[in-house]
Measured scan of single mutants.
Amino acid sequence: MEVVDPQQLGMFTEGELMSVGMDTFIHRIDSTEVIYQPRRKRAKLIGKYLMGDLLGEGSYGKVKEVLDSETLCRRAVKILKKKKLRRIPNGEANVKKEIQLLRRLRHKNVIQLVDVLYNEEKQKMYMVMEYCVCGMQEMLDSVPEKRFPVCQAHGYFCQLIDGLEYLHSQGIVHKDIKPGNLLLTTGGTLKISDLGVAEALHPFAADDTCRTSQGSPAFQPPEIANGLDTFSGFKVDIWSAGVTLYNITTGLYPFEGDNIYKLFENIGKGSYAIPGDCGPPLSDLLKGMLEYEPAKRFSIRQIRQHSWFRKKHPPAEAPVPIPPSPDTKDRWRSMTVVPYLEDLHGADEDEDLFDIEDDIIYTQDFTVPGQVPEEEASHNGQRRGLPKAVCMNGTEAAQLSTKSRAEGRAPNPARKACSASSKIRRLSACKQQ
């Protein structure tokens, strides 16, 4: 084909351009004929944790799935940006308080904090938690009735009371019990989460009196709706648990309003109706937990002794299953770290194939690490110290990083047969305790 000078094309009309061969290198194709290559998922490591896909996002930050490269346990990490926390009232204080509380709590029905990582340079905090497959609110939203069968609701409620009793025994008032803060594992274990607005009572406090509340409006008791200066913290949790039980068994809320002012007005009056299909035992329990006067409201001991709580409820309806993943529609909620794991395991070791967030990740503290002497050669063979940054567990980050890069360049065919977990650990520049 004859090559045409581009400067001469402006002298031709459209018809003349076609005659000189423009149609031979300008093609129009339908979008259905285009085959897009999927974007390669680059592996990203935060300390010893391999990052997966997004699980959810809230006002405080994002939650992603991660894999512990040492234990191969599935975890969830809450990623918090200090810049964003400053824009939220009491944001930083709530996060630090939640970390302090979770560090000393150990119960099967309370979410466990596994690790805390802090990135000084990017001003990011990573709260590594045990993995929960789904939230209770997500399960309720997945069915038209917006409720659980009585047998399933009873099982979840009993676990909620177990976890709540443990928190109260530790002198902690949750203040925000609701389905949105109750998570579930694949085995059906309920976990109380989000202790950001919780309050730890003084060890020598005479009672459970509280003065502040930041919980969700629909789950607040009349004493808070009416603006009382002080109130019983434990009875606030009992009320919120009662509203939660009402919601998961009926699909409704005892109090509603077009806006928060109308909602608080209705809560302050204390008038509500219980659907007739709840039955006398459940209705009596709800009335005891939603008692207007805090002094007359049920205690956890009274809830445990109630006939509806103690009764064994046979399954009359099919239980609400864990819904498919909202993004991938995966009904099994498979591990989202698998594509990243395959990338590390299947590809040659190259620095361009993975990302390490930083050479140094500070753990379990908000301060910069200490310094240790770096050896410097002298005339008599002895070495003197220069400062060298280290990880919180004493690992020399720069030395590990250099060693990792040197190993990656060394030709050794046997290394390709290593397991995925050992490869992740070798790529991680800074081991965590």
Rank of each mutant, 00 (worst) to 15 (best):
residue 253 Y to F: 03
residue 381 G to K: 14
residue 162 D to T: 11
residue 109 N to D: 02
residue 123 Q to F: 04
residue 376 E to T: 13
residue 264 F to V: 03
residue 312 K to G: 15
residue 61 G to V: 03
residue 325 S to V: 04
residue 168 H to C: 01
residue 114 V to F: 06
residue 299 S to T: 14
residue 399 Q to W: 11
residue 128 V to I: 15
residue 14 E to S: 10
residue 315 P to C: 08
residue 199 E to G: 06
residue 282 L to S: 02
residue 35 I to T: 10
residue 78 K to Q: 07
residue 33 E to L: 06
residue 4 V to S: 06
residue 418 C to I: 11
residue 189 T to I: 10
residue 11 M to G: 11
residue 344 L to S: 12
residue 265 E to I: 11
residue 314 P to M: 15
residue 112 Q to A: 09
residue 422 S to Y: 13
residue 305 Q to M: 13
residue 18 M to C: 05
residue 149 P to A: 08
residue 129 M to F: 06
residue 269 K to C: 07
residue 75 R to A: 15
residue 57 E to R: 07
residue 288 G to P: 00
residue 349 E to C: 07
residue 341 L to W: 09
residue 137 Q to Y: 04
residue 168 H to Y: 02
residue 131 Y to R: 01
residue 73 C to F: 03
residue 206 A to S: 08
residue 273 A to M: 04
residue 339 P to D: 13
residue 164 L to R: 00
residue 316 A to R: 05
residue 214 Q to R: 12
residue 161 I to Y: 01
residue 62 K to W: 11
residue 57 E to W: 04
residue 96 K to Q: 03
residue 187 G to A: 07
residue 150 V to T: 02
residue 245 L to S: 00
residue 124 K to H: 10
residue 99 I to S: 04
residue 417 A to M: 12
residue 172 I to M: 02
residue 257 G to E: 10
residue 211 R to P: 08
residue 244 T to W: 01
residue 118 Y to C: 03
residue 282 L to G: 02
residue 356 I to V: 12
residue 394 G to W: 09
residue 251 G to F: 01
residue 351 E to H: 02
residue 215 G to D: 01
residue 428 S to V: 14
residue 22 M to R: 15
residue 265 E to T: 14
residue 413 P to M: 13
residue 37 Q to V: 11
residue 247 N to R: 05
residue 28 R to P: 02
residue 390 V to R: 11
residue 390 V to G: 11
residue 379 H to R: 11
residue 76 A to S: 07
residue 79 I to F: 01
residue 144 P to S: 04
residue 118 Y to N: 01
residue 46 I to M: 05
residue 126 Y to W: 01
residue 255 F to W: 05
residue 283 S to V: 08
residue 262 K to F: 03
residue 276 G to P: 08
residue 207 D to Y: 01
residue 22 M to A: 08
residue 184 L to A: 03
residue 199 E to W: 01
residue 351 E to M: 06
residue 270 G to M: 06
residue 293 E to A: 06
residue 133 V to G: 07
residue 221 P to M: 02
residue 55 L to R: 08
residue 100 Q to S: 07
residue 333 R to G: 12
residue 262 K to L: 07
residue 279 G to T: 14
residue 67 L to W: 03
residue 311 K to L: 06
residue 120 E to T: 11
residue 244 T to A: 03
residue 120 E to A: 04
residue 321 P to M: 15
residue 4 V to P: 06
residue 172 I to R: 02
residue 235 K to T: 02
residue 337 V to T: 15
residue 281 P to Y: 11
residue 30 D to H: 10
residue 139 M to T: 08
residue 128 V to Q: 08
residue 231 F to E: 09
residue 280 P to L: 10
residue 322 I to T: 05
residue 375 E to K: 14
residue 259 N to C: 07
residue 146 K to I: 01
residue 28 R to A: 13
residue 422 S to K: 13
residue 163 G to W: 05
residue 356 I to H: 13
residue 390 V to F: 08
residue 333 R to S: 14
residue 75 R to Y: 13
residue 213 S to R: 06
residue 351 E to L: 11
residue 184 L to I: 05
residue 247 N to T: 05
residue 274 I to Q: 15
residue 412 N to E: 13
residue 208 D to Y: 05
residue 222 P to C: 04
residue 293 E to Q: 09
residue 360 I to M: 04
residue 286 L to W: 08
residue 277 D to I: 12
residue 55 L to V: 03
residue 149 P to N: 11
residue 4 V to T: 06
residue 336 T to R: 13
residue 275 P to M: 02
residue 61 G to E: 01
residue 130 E to C: 02
residue 19 S to I: 10
residue 379 H to I: 13
residue 217 P to A: 09
residue 255 F to V: 07
residue 367 T to W: 11
residue 59 S to I: 10
residue 248 I to Q: 09
residue 264 F to T: 05
residue 414 A to Y: 14
residue 312 K to T: 12
residue 278 C to T: 09
residue 49 Y to L: 04
residue 336 T to N: 04
residue 324 P to M: 04
residue 75 R to K: 13
residue 224 I to K: 08
residue 135 G to W: 03
residue 364 Q to M: 04
residue 206 A to I: 12
residue 78 K to H: 00
residue 405 R to M: 14
residue 9 L to I: 11
residue 113 L to D: 00
residue 56 G to R: 01
residue 421 S to D: 15
residue 91 G to K: 01
residue 239 W to Y: 05
residue 363 T to V: 08
residue 355 D to E: 06
residue 298 F to Y: 04
residue 205 A to F: 10
residue 78 K to L: 01
residue 126 Y to A: 08
residue 334 S to T: 08
residue 211 R to I: 04
residue 347 A to V: 09
residue 91 G to C: 01
residue 348 D to S: 14
residue 352 D to C: 10
residue 368 V to W: 04
residue 242 G to S: 00
residue 158 C to G: 02
residue 396 E to H: 13
residue 90 N to R: 06
residue 371 Q to C: 10
residue 397 A to W: 04
residue 280 P to N: 15
residue 336 T to A: 13
residue 230 T to M: 05
residue 384 R to L: 12
residue 180 G to H: 15
residue 170 Q to V: 09
residue 273 A to L: 05
residue 147 R to A: 04
residue 92 E to C: 15
residue 141 D to E: 05
residue 232 S to G: 05
residue 132 C to T: 13
residue 312 K to P: 11
residue 372 V to N: 13
residue 399 Q to S: 05
residue 34 V to C: 05
residue 319 P to H: 08
residue 321 P to F: 05
residue 376 E to S: 14
residue 306 H to G: 02
residue 335 M to C: 10
residue 155 G to A: 09
residue 214 Q to W: 04
residue 266 N to A: 12
residue 112 Q to T: 09
residue 276 G to W: 10
residue 261 Y to T: 06
residue 283 S to P: 08
residue 297 R to I: 01
residue 351 E to C: 06
residue 82 K to G: 09
residue 359 D to P: 13
residue 124 K to G: 06
residue 49 Y to C: 06
residue 175 K to S: 05
residue 314 P to Q: 08
residue 219 F to L: 07
residue 292 Y to E: 13
residue 167 L to I: 12
residue 188 G to M: 00
residue 31 S to G: 14
residue 260 I to D: 08
residue 41 K to A: 09
residue 395 T to L: 09
residue 138 E to D: 07
residue 377 A to H: 01
residue 405 R to S: 13
residue 362 Y to P: 14
residue 209 T to R: 09
residue 229 D to A: 05
residue 247 N to Y: 10
residue 396 E to C: 09
residue 98 E to K: 07
residue 411 P to A: 06
residue 125 M to Y: 10
residue 86 R to V: 11
residue 117 L to P: 02
residue 158 C to S: 03
residue 176 D to W: 00
residue 199 E to S: 08
residue 425 R to C: 09
residue 337 V to K: 13
residue 139 M to I: 06
residue 29 I to T: 02
residue 262 K to P: 14
residue 234 F to E: 14
residue 365 D to A: 03
residue 300 I to L: 09
residue 255 F to Q: 05
residue 357 E to D: 03
residue 6 P to C: 07
residue 339 P to E: 02
residue 293 E to F: 06
residue 173 V to I: 13
residue 269 K to R: 08
residue 379 H to A: 11
